[in-house]
Nucleic acid binder design. Structure first.
Length: 437
RNA sequence: GUGACUGUAGCUCAAUUGGUUAGAGCACCGGUCUGUGGCACCGGGGGUUGCGGGUUCAAUCCCCGUCAGUCACCCCA
């Protein structure tokens, strides 16, 4: 028996679990502020749910199998099909726009490398039922606010946005054939990752003139609505630029404008995106995308549901975790005992237990030695466990001989001066009630 | 799926051009000591050197295979 987890799978020891919890907390907190509500679906779905959307090639990248009832099954590689199925089943009953989020664990059978495992947790946030760019702005603002909630700033993370309708109009204005547009998307998607000459060559072989390819290339990378207006004074392009301008204006009003940059190289691999698309990157550009999403207005209809406008993003925990660790922001609070209760001799263990019970009832987090040990030994154990206070019981029932703070930062609540367990419990109880106000 | 590089204790690393019983620090466990605090000292557990084969009197070291990790493709979340 190997002691290691399967390739691409992670063990979450308490230290790693605390990191995961830190990320999840930020996700849920920002989702709450934006009034998204949480849902979940099954981790196993019919294989067909994914082949219908992505074709049979997807099967090579899935954890799929035949179950004991002969059904073709897959672990979910993404959440959107499940979401589409759930929304589709109740499309008429749901209040629009639907604002939902989920934190599924997703699985892909692929060779692992940095930032890419066979399993990850991915926040999915979607808005369904609103076609205007207001929804696009709301969605991206939520993604960016998660970065801020985790302590990252515009200097750490950049949101690059584009619009497939805009790119489509630009390509047509440069003489691209309608049926070749997807092929052009593919080249533009790889623009940053391959030599410029190669991209140029691929574009011309798709039928675009040398001059027009060169014209397009000067606008790939960070750009602005203004410079695109001047360079492509085509009616269809200008109409799309108006939409983008409105979108960027809304992002300013939502307080995230300085994170955002217009960049036509953002295409996203998935064929189903129909409008604004975006990705969040670390500003140094060393890691994979932290988050990606956009508008997929035709997907719900294509999957057999009601045809509703929709948009959403996915944000994985792996790359995000790497960035946070790199920036020294992955410092989850430790969840060690607040109180370690101890007594001089082993005969008093029952009293220690009674004190622990009382403190726990009052909301305290309490540990004590589970075997009889010398007082010094108990204190050492308390320190080693990271307990906040070392409580030594006194002579009388329920009395406290001393309370020592073991951590550098001692609480200012006067806890150390309590002389009985009852008094300490009252302090704890008042703390709990004032916190919940 | 393709290619390159790397695998020694839980972690970070040693081990003479191939040479006795593979070591150290940290961590863990036990003990002694010190009333102001995770100290000091003593002791202990823990390795089929990823795994399998080959060359050799002798392999952690050289060769082959395999598995795993890292990176780049591919693909994307």
């Amino acid at each position: 028996m190997s002691k290691a987890a399967l390739p691409g799978f992670r063990d979450f020891y308490p230290a790693e679990f605390a990191e995961r919890a830190l990320i999840f907390r930020a996700w849920r907190e920002v989702a709450r502020r934006y009034a998204f509500v949480e849902y979940d679906g099954p981790p196993l779905e019919p294989l067909e749910l994914y082949t219908k959307k992505s074709g049979d090639e997807i099967v090579g990248q899935l954890y799929n199998f035949t179950d004991k009832g002969g059904r073709e099954i897959s672990l979910r590689p993404e959440m959107t099909p499940s979401l589409a199925r759930m929304v589709g089943a109740r499309a008429n009953a749901l209040r629009k726009p639907v604002r939902w989020f989920s934190i599924p664990q997703l699985f892909r059978y692929e060779r692992q490398q940095r930032g890419r495992l066979r399993e990850h947790f991915q926040l999915n946030v979607d808005i369904i039922g609103e076609a205007d760019v207001t929804a696009d702005a709301e969605l991206l603002a939520a993604a960016i606010d998660i970065m801020a909630e985790l302590g990252l700033g515009p200097a750490d993370v950049r949101a690059r946005v584009s619009d497939r309708r805009l790119l489509h109009a630009i390509l047509l204005s440069l003489g691209a054939a309608e049926e070749q547009v997807n092929a052009y998307y593919g080249v533009i998607d790889k623009f940053e990752r391959q030599p410029r000459e190669l991209s140029h060559e691929k574009m011309t072989s798709l039928g675009m003139s040398d001059a027009n390819v060169a014209r397009l290339f000067t606008h790939l990378g960070p750009t602005s609505v203004q410079s695109l207006r001047e360079s492509f004074p085509d009616a269809a392009v200008l109409e799309q630029l108006d939409g983008i301008a409105r979108y960027l204006g809304y992002l300013d009003r939502l307080g995230v404008g300085e994170w955002v940059v217009l960049d036509l190289t953002i295409v996203r691999g998935l064929a189903y995106y129909t409008g604004i698309v975006f990705e969040l990157f670390d500003a140094k550009g060393e890691l994979r995308a932290i988050c990606g999403g956009g508008r997929y207005d035709n997907l719900l209809g294509a999957l057999g549901g009601q045809d509703l406008p929709a948009l959403g993003f996915g944000m994985g925990d792996v790359v995000l975790g790497e960035l946070l660790r790199e920036r020294g922001l992955m410092t989850p609070p430790s969840h060690t005992a607040e109180f370690w209760v101890a007594a001089e001799n082993a005969e008093r263990l029952p009293e220690v237990m009674e004190a622990a019970r009382a403190l726990r009832d009052a909301g305290g987090s309490v540990e004590y030695a589970l075997r009889s040990q010398q007082l010094q030994k108990q204190k050492k154990a308390a320190q080693s466990a990271g307990a906040g206070y070392f409580v030594t019981l006194g002579e009388g029932p329920g009395s406290i001989a001393s309370i020592q703070s073991l951590t550098a930062a001692s609480a200012p609540s006067g806890i150390e001066s309590a002389t009985t367990i009852d008094a300490l419990c009252q302090l704890l109880a008042s703390r709990t009630s004032s916190e919940s106000d």
